[in-house]
Design a binder for these strands. Sequence first.
DNA 1: CATCAATATGACTATATGGTCACAAATGTA
DNA 2: TACATTTGTGACCATATAGTCATATTGATG
Lengths: 219, 219
Amino acid sequence: MPRDTFHKLKEEKRELITNAFLREFAIKTYDEASITQVVKELGIAKGSMYQYFDDKLDLFMYLIEECSKVKMQYTLHVSREDYPDYWEYFHALFLEGLKFDANHPLQSHFLHNLTQNLNSPSVKEQFDQLQKQVVEAFTAMVKYEVGIGKFRDDVDLDVLGFMLYKLGTGVQEHLEYHNIINPQQSIETRTPVYQGKKKELIATLNHYIALARSAFDKQ
Amino acid sequence: MPRDTFHKLKEEKRELITNAFLREFAIKTYDEASITQVVKELGIAKGSMYQYFDDKLDLFMYLIEECSKVKMQYTLHVSREDYPDYWEYFHALFLEGLKFDANHPLQSHFLHNLTQNLNSPSVKEQFDQLQKQVVEAFTAMVKYEVGIGKFRDDVDLDVLGFMLYKLGTGVQEHLEYHNIINPQQSIETRTPVYQGKKKELIATLNHYIALARSAFDKQ
DNA sequence: CATCAATATGACTATATGGTCACAAATGTA
DNA sequence: TACATTTGTGACCATATAGTCATATTGATG
């Protein structure tokens, strides 16, 4: 948690600082990211940062929380009940992700880099915790779908849940792997990751959904 | 590539060195792994290491290569033609992996840690290259199965390939996530990762295969 | 204006490590 | 034994950064 001092800052300065660090952590590993550098860039003293945050990890967690909040505003709009089918819901979630990316590129960049970022041993614990939350959310969804007879019931729920989680991250990784999106480059050019790639994303997403339907749906 | 000096070493010493570093890289990130420490442990001079290898990366790549060779000896036994069905072949590959793990725990540990290991920016390039090889291998398999009419042909080959790749890594990650296996602990106790967990592995594997059959097979 | 608390500052410390290099030891050769 | 070549050695250097702290600055308050 940031200290009071940070919250008391003028909004402008607070955002300047937040954004500068978002940028740093968006292109570097947690361990690589240098407070010294960013602070120099910002023209503020390093000591000040330690008046705002307990330490590097505190700062990092704050950034995660802020970005998550912003993204939530988008995904919480989408509600399962509005869709007759889980996969249309799943699809809709991705579209919200697109909006988020377009409107908040910096936050999107940061979150894109998070996976790699979090492999640093220094934040492994935090990563495991986050991952657990996400997997559990997916497992809960699966459970619901099985319950209402939409998903198959002959496969372990945990397997379905974990696979659904992997499916979510898989689409993005697929697009990165095939150079359709390039988060690193997008960060440099400060453009949304999916700018001009909406069609490609949706096409790939639909392919994955086609596979997933066969795998998950009760036949 | 290790220097000649290294190859000329007595086999015993060569293995002592190799094993010590396998252990180090099995429990730490590439960046975290400390040559200084291992060398101290081994009781040899740091300078000697630089007579054996160009640098840290050279050493690391050597370890990858050695372990891969050993594992290959197992997986190359399995041939697609001996199975009527891709998934039985897939299953058989995992069983060979089990044998490898049981007979070469150290190498298995190292390879298990490789994924996390390779997220260090210092070796990102190497990781991408390795990943590319693996994904391409899977994509080739998929292409073959589609060709002989076993796999569906209405989904992009790249999607099938990438998903199959994810499936391979997914089973292991699933077991780790659910604490069925614990590579870190296994390294400490120097026991094979899957020791006493064969049944669990196979059960989970079969669940994933059940899903995959529905997803990939031509109906 | 004077006083006190909250902030800002940046030189400095502690800490590690990859890699080098001049020199020592060992091994081979004749 | 005398010489040459290959190996082994470990003190040393360059490098970088998270975090600290005594001090200076600012701002509010009466």
